[in-house]
Structures are given as C-alpha cells and as structure tokens.
Simulated assay, not measured.
Amino acid sequence: MELRNISSQDSWNRFVQEREYVPFLQSFEWGAFQEQQGHRVERLSIWNREKFCLGASIIHHRLPLQYNFLYCPHGPLFANGLSLEERRAAFAFLFQYLQRVYKTSIFLRCDPHIKLPSRFDTSRVSHWVQPEYTQRLSLEHASQEAQLLANMKQKTRYNIRLAFKKGVRVARGVRPADFPLASRMIRDTLQRRDLRAHPLSYYQNMLEYGRISETFGIVRLYQAALRGQVLAVGIFIFYGDTVTYLHGGSSQSLKSVMAPYALHWQVICDAQIEGFRYFDFGGVAPPSQTQHKLTHVTRFKTGFGGAQVRASYLYEFPLRKNVFRAFALAKKFRHFL
C-alpha cells in the first residue's frame, strides 16, 4: 500500500462527496478553516496500487510539553465497495504510518459515522467531541412545504405560524457588523444551558472567513428578528447533500414570539429549494436517556420531524502508549483538583 497527500480541493471533495450524509468535517473547506485557526491539517489518502482505499483529513491539536494529538473528525472515510479486510488493511496502514512518522503525537482520535474495522487497542473515552446522536430530516421525499409541515409535531407547526404572524422575519446575516452580536448570542445561550462554548473569536472568525473566502463559502449565518431586534441566530453548513445546524443562540427577550422556530423553518425551506437531500439538526440526547444535558434542545429539534440516528462512534488510539498513560493519569488527577 502507498500513502499520498492530496492538495487539490476538487479531488478531495469529489471523494468526500461520494457518500450519503456527506460529513462536512472532512471537507477541504473545514480543513482550510482549521488551518486559519492555527492548526496543521493534512489530507492523507491510502492506495492499494492504483485503487483508492481511504481518505482522512487529520488536524493536529497542540498539548503541553511539545506534544500533540491527531484528530480525524467524522473520519476516516473508506472508498465505496471495499471488503472488510481491505478496510482493515487500509486503516492499519494509516495507523502505522502515523505511529512511525509523528513522534510527538500521543494518540489518534476518530469519530466516524460507522464502526471502524480495527484490531488496534483503543482507550476508554468518556468525552464526546461530536454528537453521538443527531436528528436528521429527509428533504428529498417531501416535494412541497406543506408535506414538510405535515410531518412535524402539531406544536411545532403552531409555533412556526405564530412566529410569522407576530412579525418575525428571517434573513441571512452577511455584514461584518452582524457577527459580534451573533457570536455573543451563541456563546451566552450555550453557557446558559451549561454546554461547552468556544471563545467569541472562534465564531467571529468562522463567519468572517466564510464571508471573504470562496474556499469556505459553505458557512451561512441566519438571523430571526422582530422590528429590527435580533432574537435568534444560527450558523449552518451547506455542503454536499446535507445542510447542518452547527451553532445557534437565542435572546431571553420576547421568547413568546418563537423566533427560533421561524429561523429553522426558513433554513429548511432554503435547503429544499437549493436541492439538498438532508437537513441535520445536530446533537440530540441518546434515545435511552431522559435526563441529559441535551434534553431541552432535543424536544425542539424532534418537533420538526425526521429520525434520530447514530452520528458517530468515538475512538482514541494510543500512538505512544507510555506517554498516553501518563497524559491520561495527569488529566484524571487534574479533574479531582
């Protein structure tokens, strides 16, 4: 087998978009944004003679003491039509390459949509980076808006109509002046719900980079407002066959006008008009857990219809076992301080 770096945006995206529910986290554009954030990104491919077997966009994340870990979000991705043994061999080749070349990388973290056919040891992981479950809405079988509305829960339909009746209007935010308010609203909402939030600069950089760069033109900001007052915002990714709800927030003011319902409905309509096959609401609580930090947002998302699906399987593969054990012990000790 042979490993090759892929630097062509078209070649990389052509491979990524071969599958259903295209994972934007493996897109060339997402890697470009991570590079803009200061991370090293590599797009590696494994070939068996001239047969393409596997692709992995890998992000280097810095750790203390000049160490780092490698993260392959929603990957690696296998070529269609491979046998189980071919997938095992391709992943083994990738793992052994990373272990041989990256002497300061402690572990490889992966969270693909499917289980990995790996025989390598993994560590027990308690912290999910990407959602384990998501709510996914199919747009290709609903030819009209009325059909999408009919598949929703009655309360959701009512709230959508109420929002527009009250005068809520939804538009794309494209001005740089829109970005600070949207970023603060997203951060404040996540903190209010005791969910992990990025620094304000992360959201603003994403929106600004999407505005000025054709490379990352897949990101869109939507805003729902009443008489000029922004009440809800959302960052959405339009990529491949799927529109994904990435980050969102809402104001504590005028909650009775149901602005978030109008916002999501408008994005769903836009996605359908533009020919996307799926709308992904992002993380929801696992089906068996009624008391979960995502329970509140799960009620909101499932009201729009669709199906709850397994979105990722989380793995951590130690590349330097002794250093990894020391790192895990230090992290556990810090947790109890």
Rank of each mutant, 00 (worst) to 15 (best):
L263F: 00
A262G: 12
Q223F: 06
G217S: 11
Y202M: 10
N205S: 13
Y239K: 05
R220C: 12
E208K: 15
R220L: 11
T215Y: 09
Y209F: 08
T242W: 10
R211K: 13
H264D: 13
T242A: 10
R211S: 15
Q252G: 08
L254N: 11
L200H: 15
M206R: 04
D241I: 04
T215K: 11
A224T: 12
S253M: 08
I218Q: 12
L200V: 14
H264F: 14
V257Y: 00
D241R: 06
T242D: 11
R227D: 12
G240I: 01
S250I: 05
G217L: 10
I237A: 01
L226T: 06
V243S: 13
Q229S: 11
F236I: 04
A259V: 04
F216T: 13
S250P: 01
I235R: 03
A262I: 05
P199W: 02
S251N: 06
T242S: 12
L226S: 02
Q223M: 13
I235K: 03
Q204F: 02
M258N: 09
G217M: 08
L226Q: 09
R220V: 04
E208P: 00
S250Y: 01
S251G: 12
A262E: 09
G249P: 06
S201F: 07
P260W: 02
E214H: 12
H198W: 10
G249Y: 05
L263P: 02
I212T: 09
N205G: 09
P260V: 04
T215A: 14
D241M: 04
A197M: 05
S213L: 07
H198T: 05
Y222T: 07
L207C: 06
A259M: 09
Q223A: 11
R211Q: 08
L246N: 03
P199M: 05
A224F: 00
Y203S: 15
Q204C: 06
I212Q: 14
G217H: 10
G228H: 01
G248N: 09
P199A: 15
E208S: 15
M258A: 10
T242M: 13
Y239R: 02
E208D: 11
F216P: 01
S256I: 12
S253G: 05
I237S: 03
N205R: 14
G210E: 09
V257Q: 00
Q223P: 07
Y245R: 04
